[in-house]
Write a protein that binds this DNA or RNA. Sequence first.
DNA 1: CGTGAGTTTGACCAGATGGTCAAATCAAGA
DNA 2: TCTTGATTTGACCATCTGGTCAAACTCACG
Lengths: 202, 202
Amino acid sequence: MPKDRAPTRIQKKNRAAILEAALNVFSAHGFRGATVDQIATEAGLSKPNLLYYFPSKEAIHTALLSGLLEIWLAPLHDLDESGDPLHEILSYIHRKLQMSRELPRESRLFANELVQGAPRINDALSNDLKTLVDEKTKILTHWMDQGKIARLHPYHLIFSIWALTQHYADFDVQVRSILGDEDPFEGADPFIDTLYRKLLTP
Amino acid sequence: MPKDRAPTRIQKKNRAAILEAALNVFSAHGFRGATVDQIATEAGLSKPNLLYYFPSKEAIHTALLSGLLEIWLAPLHDLDESGDPLHEILSYIHRKLQMSRELPRESRLFANELVQGAPRINDALSNDLKTLVDEKTKILTHWMDQGKIARLHPYHLIFSIWALTQHYADFDVQVRSILGDEDPFEGADPFIDTLYRKLLTP
DNA sequence: CGTGAGTTTGACCAGATGGTCAAATCAAGA
DNA sequence: TCTTGATTTGACCATCTGGTCAAACTCACG
């Protein structure tokens, strides 16, 4: 394992390569389905060399998840109480859908974890995520109280946004096997936009 | 492997026990994460004994999936052109949500497959599923043409139903870590009902 | 009963996999 | 250039895992 000093040029490069490769492999095969050898090969390293940078398979996975959780939650973080309610929510939805389009591996990485009961990120869910969601549902409820948007169960409103947007990344195979050549997001964007405009109009 | 005659009492019992155990294990850990030993133990059999009934791990998985696909698609199958459009669609949605509640393992079994690119059921997707969906979207489009329901992209309408209902089974941990003690389906049912009533009203 | 088919299992195997280690190689500053 | 720490690797290990097999056991039926 590299010493605890400032990372060298080589360390930076290799750590980044490992995390990039790990994202590919973990998102495609899940934790158990991924092999250290596969990650090492994809990162252009030998297995022992990879294990020189991370002490274990688990450590790579943890580093990857915790590094990405922030990115993943950023759009919700940005939901602004002082903005226009409908615009704020639609912006959030739009960003989430864009993330499904541009970061499908990240979406599937989390999906893999969650479907299997999130054995390695339960803490983050119950703490960071719950706190953030509680904070933002308060804003939503406030908007509903003011009659700015339709009254709905705020938690389920958020779940619906997650479900509808991430579906296109997580179940990409299914979506594409039905749509054929049509770009899923071409139709998804206006559909979801219409849906939430109708739903949120008081 | 048992002979090709009519199954004995013991064969029936053990085959059923194996499939039940396999559903538990595969849905919780994915194909790669499941072990034959674990399935055997959960079914109350030794590993060689299990492999006396199914020739391989893969065979168990295949048997399970193909057996459940029919059940899984039944609600969509029942969508009836001659019924009242809004009622037919809402019934479908309600049944799907109920399946998430009562058959979460089945939902996660498919979710695990799909998230990882459906390496073992790609055929079924491109054939059976696509055919069924094409058939039913035709009905939806017809209803839209008649002005009975709002005009929407029919494929994305179906995707949205899948996403919203299966979310509660597939990402159960996440939903519960946010809702706490509250029963997810208690709030989900009216929320989704409201959503589609608003969305589908022309 | 007795017998043959159906069922079960302990012992075993080969390959995969996560991880270790000492030795070899490389890179950068004195 | 030389030295020292950083980096890389081949060889190796223990464990897990899917699967096999021959022998033992059980059951249903004549």
